[in-house]
Simulated scan of single mutants.
Amino acid sequence: MTVALLCVPHAGAGASMFRKWKRHPFRQLEVVPVQLPGREELFAQDPLTSLTEVVDWCLDRVRETPEDAPFALFGHSFGALVAYETAQRLVAEGARLPERLVVSGVAAPWLPRPVMGGETLTDDRFAARVREVVGHDHPALHDAELRGLLLPSLRADLGISDRYTPGSTDPLPFPVTVLRGADDQLVSRQDAALWSKVGASSTEVIEMPGDHMYFSLDPKPLLAELDAVFARGAG
């Protein structure tokens, strides 16, 4: 049976990259992009500025999936924290649970993370801070017009990340898969491995070639790995 993989974007990003993933020949997955307010076709809406609002938004997307169909959650970096908190809320509410949580490019939720300062820094300093911490330079940060479109949602998301504390660290009753770029300078192998305390069922940590944004230029290795993860789970 096909598993609907709800994909939450990283900070400031829209869901368009996930729509491209839908063309990948998955064996068991159907990619379901989660578009957050303030970006792409929802640009006219204000970005959400609290974790509770973002999780509520994601829970609504979960509820839109067919009741009798399996689903899973995926997120990268900021999106991984949102996916994790969404999973915890589903457990707390006694709701239908995902088959699996897949978190990418993020340390275990209780660990300290760099403060980005997006709510106080000027545009130039904030863009420089993002490049410094993430170790990845997005072309939009160098274009005044594109930066004006990107920064409001990026500031909102990273503001949530700056204030983040986990709502719960109780073990989740379903498998957790952790993905990390082998050359990621933001998330160490040890900090990624500590997710093992979250997965009561099972946790696997998989390293991919590349840095923090290891899938940005070529997502095919990641998509093939996701396909393999869910194929193993089905076996």
Rank of each mutant, 00 (worst) to 15 (best):
V102I: 10
L158T: 10
Y84T: 06
G94W: 03
R129E: 14
F174D: 08
K197L: 08
L172M: 10
A127I: 15
Y84M: 03
S104W: 02
F78G: 05
G118P: 02
E132A: 15
K197R: 15
G118W: 07
V115C: 08
F126S: 15
I160T: 00
R180V: 07
A192M: 07
V178K: 02
R125D: 13
V82S: 08
L172S: 13
I160E: 05
P173Y: 00
V133E: 06
R189K: 00
E93Q: 13
L172K: 14
D123L: 01
D124R: 05
A193L: 05
G105M: 02
G159S: 05
D123Q: 05
A107E: 13
L101W: 08
A83V: 06
E99M: 07
T122E: 03
Q88W: 15
R131S: 15
L194E: 06
L97D: 00
A95E: 12
P166L: 10
L154K: 03
P166Q: 06
F78V: 06
T177Y: 02
P112V: 11
L186W: 00
P166A: 02
H142A: 11
P173Q: 05
P175N: 13
D184Y: 04
P139G: 15
A200L: 15
R131W: 06
K197I: 03
T122S: 13
P114D: 02
V178S: 10
D123Y: 03
V134L: 05
A92P: 04
V134W: 08
P114L: 08
L146C: 01
V198I: 14
P166W: 09
S153E: 03
P152T: 06
S188R: 00
R100C: 14
P112E: 10
F126A: 13
P175H: 02
A182P: 13
L179V: 04
G135D: 03
V187N: 03
T120S: 08
V102H: 04
A127M: 05
F174G: 05
A193E: 14
E119P: 08
L101G: 04
D123H: 01
V91I: 06
L97E: 07
L172E: 11
T169P: 11
G199Y: 08
V106K: 01
A87M: 10
A108H: 12
P171F: 12
R113F: 12
D183I: 13
E99K: 04
L121H: 07
V103C: 02
G79V: 08
G148I: 00
L186C: 00
D157S: 09
L97K: 01
L186R: 03
E119M: 15
D183S: 14
F126G: 06
V133S: 14
W195Y: 00
R147C: 05
W110R: 05
V103L: 01
L81C: 05
A108N: 01
H138C: 01
V115F: 14
S201L: 15
E132T: 09
R131K: 15
L179M: 08
L194I: 11
L121K: 03
L97G: 07
S201N: 09
E93K: 14
R125E: 05
A128N: 03
G199Q: 02
D157V: 12
A182F: 01
P152G: 02
T122D: 11
S161R: 10
D124A: 10
Q190K: 11
G181R: 01
L141M: 12
